[in-house]
Amino acid sequence: MAEQFVAKASEFQNGDRQIIRVGEDEIGIFKHEGKYYAYSNFCLHQGGPACEGLTIAGVKEKLRDDKTSVGLYFDENSMHFVCPWHGYEYDMFSGEQVADRRLKLKKYNVVQKGDEVYVVA
């Protein structure tokens, strides 16, 4: 495992993504609210480009005490990314598939050294 250069931190804005190939692996690196997350770009479902789809906050339902629904809303404390092939949705913070938390994308460590961002792969 070695540190592989990804991009200049100053050019990597919040909400940006970069897909790189290191040897035989494809890795998607996300920047969300100042933090970096990196996962394998191979979807656990059928090997689609998991990190290249929509990014969207998790949807939750607001309930009153008597369990009456007040409606659905986007949870600001969560962020998901969706594989564009068949809609497998992953938690950006853990790489877990949100419908079945036992399934998890391979996670890579991201290191920032000065203005340079590296992924350990």
Binding site: A2, Q4, F5, A7, Q13, N14, G15, D16, R17, Q18, I19, I20, R21, V22, G23, E26, K31, E52, T55, A121
Partner: peptide, 14 residues
């Protein structure tokens, strides 16, 4: 020998 890193694509946020 370090593995070759290739940038496949850059996706800008909103």
């Amino acid at each position: 020998a370090a593995p070759k890193v290739e940038v496949l694509r850059r996706i800008s946020g909103a």
